[in-house]
Structures are given as C-alpha cells and as structure tokens.
Computed example of a mutant assay.
Amino acid sequence: MLDRIRLDKVVVVPDDALPLAGGYPTNNPNLNDRTVDLQWGFPNDASIGTFYGDHATRSSSNPFYYEASLLHELGHARYLVDVYGFNVHVSAGNRIDILENGAPIVGTPYMPYVNSWRDAVRYTPYTGLMNGNGPTVDRHSAVALNLIRGRRATLGNYNAPGNLGAYLNDLPAQNELTVRDASGAALPGASVRIYRAGPGEGWYAKVYDNTADMSLTADAAGKVLLGRCPFSATGGITHTNNHSNGVAIVRVQSGDRVGYGFIEATDFNLEYWRGRTALGRHELRVALRKQGSAVGSVDEHAPTERVSQPLVVKNEVSDLVGQ
C-alpha cells in the first residue's frame, strides 16, 4: 500500500442535520465538501451511543477503537468494489441452470457446494477488507488503490463515487487460457465452453443459463484464446445490484471426461497490471469425471483451482494504466 490515510477534519453539526446536501446521512454527509478525499457521516441515532460506547478499550472488537466496516465503506468512497461480489451462489436471485446428461450440475461432483448452507459453489480467493474480513487488504484491491496513489478524488469523495470499480475493465487485449486436469496435465484438443453470468435479483446476482456463450477447442498444448472479455458480449464488466458478470463458468471436456471450473475478471486485471496488456496468460485446473457416470462414482473429486503467478507490486505499477 503506497498511500497513507489520516484523519483530517471533524465537523460537528446539529442533531438530525445530516445529510447537508442530499444523499444519505452516512455515505454523503456533505456532497459540497471537496476539501477532503474521503468522507463519512455519523448521524444522531439511538444505536450510536451503544455501538461507540466503549471509549477506553484498545481492541479490534471495539468499533470506537477500530471499525473494520467503516474502513470497508471508505474503500468504496475511494472507488474499490466489494470483492465478495465475485462469490457464486445458487439462492436468493442467483441460479445455475447448466445441465449435464439432462440433470443440474449444482450439488454434484461436477460442481459441489463449498459451504454447509449449500448455497455457494465458489468463493473468490481474494480475502481482505473489501471481502468483509479485514484488517488486511486483498492484493487485487491493493493494486487498484496503488493505481491512483497520490491523486485527489475526481468523481466523488463519498460512497459511491462515479468511478467506482473503473479498474475492473483493465483487461488484456487477448487472453490465453490453458486447461489442465486436477494433476496439472494439459488437455490438448479439449472442448471448452464458456457460460457468462446474466442478471438476476439482488446485489451481485448471477444467473447462468444452459446455453454456452463461447465454444472453443484447445490446441496441442491445451490452450484456447478467449479474446479481451469472455465475461460479456458487450466487452464490459458489470458489478452492481442485480448483476455481476465478473465470473464465468468453464466446462472442459477431454475425451469422455468432463469437468467444470471458474474464471474471474480480477485475474485478468492482475495480468493487465503486470504489464501484459497485449496478452494475458491464465491456467485452469478442473477435476474430470466420465461423462454419464453415476454421480457418486467420481474418483477425481478434487476442487477446481486457479493457478496464478505471483504478483510483485512495484512503485511504478500505477503508471501501467491511466486512471
């Protein structure tokens, strides 16, 4: 993290005065104040007194001393997005309608649940403040912040500014995906299908229908070219209420064996920020099973995983992309 943030100004206003210029009392305490880079309002509320009531204990569990949720919201005010929005759920307005042999893949070895509530099939690997689990900042958000280090707010100093998540569309002009089995062996000649996330209901909703949006054939090295943005027909990443298309489902078939995995736009961003603006390189490992075999007979019941290269964050990283 190349920038440092400090408390610059505290303005005390009469009770119930917020917001001073429209919006919400918390997110937008004063839309006319351009003297600070980040702002947040604390309205007069009966719950405030108890929430911030402990003025003495130095503990990360005491919000008067350290409030992770507040820093998360200020991350939005700087332009960071919710990283947890790249998780893939199958409830509350989210669906995966993909079929294998006429049956849904969700909850089978093709795409097992990853939590005990049986409502999620995939979690983003990026954990940190914008995933709701601070105090660390995930590397994707860290580099996004470094891209605009030392710069004043341009499209708003509140949650959410006009340039919220602008960096999500930093994608290499071409992207190469190598498909591998669970052991890491490349899959030459494999059939690769890409399923994009359509809109649903609720924040970061994703609906995947049973029609592949891209159908490709891997070369002798197990590689396929995905173009600039395999996540959207229009070439743009959407990450907002009722629709997040930043995660695509990948079906891989090699001979009579089939496996499923995921690709995430954040990995494409990291390739772009490494300086690979012309060609990004990615790998996807999938656990393969015989097509048409009984669900319970799978031998390779290993989770799908994405293999990414280490990211070195250098001081000049923000010069790679103009913001």
Rank of each mutant, 00 (worst) to 15 (best):
M1N: 11
M1A: 13
L7C: 03
V10Q: 07
V13T: 05
D15F: 07
A17I: 07
A21Y: 06
P25E: 01
N28D: 09
P29F: 06
V36G: 09
G41T: 08
F42W: 08
F42N: 12
D45T: 07
D45P: 06
G49E: 08
A56P: 02
S59I: 08
S60Q: 12
S61V: 11
Y66L: 11
S69I: 08
L70D: 01
H72P: 12
E73D: 14
R78Y: 01
L80W: 00
D82I: 00
V83P: 02
G85V: 03
V90Y: 12
L99F: 09
I105Y: 08
V106Y: 04
P112C: 07
W117K: 04
R118E: 14
A120L: 08
R122A: 10
M130P: 09
G132P: 09
P135M: 05
S141R: 00
A142M: 14
A144F: 02
I148K: 15
I148M: 14
A153V: 01
A153N: 05
Y158D: 01
Y167Q: 01
Y167R: 04
E176C: 10
G184E: 11
A186R: 09
P188Q: 04
G189I: 10
V192T: 05
Y195G: 02
A197S: 10
E201V: 15
G202F: 13
K206S: 02
K206I: 08
V207M: 00
T211P: 00
D213Y: 13
L216F: 04
A220Q: 12
A221L: 14
L225V: 11
L226K: 13
R228W: 09
C229T: 05
G236C: 00
G236M: 08
H243Q: 12
G246N: 10
V247A: 01
V250D: 12
V258L: 05
E271T: 03
W273V: 03
T277N: 10
R281W: 10
R285N: 12
A287L: 06
R289I: 06
S293M: 11
A294M: 11
V295A: 14
E300K: 11
E300I: 05
E300M: 09
H301Q: 13
V307L: 13
S308V: 15
E316S: 15
L320V: 15
L320Q: 11
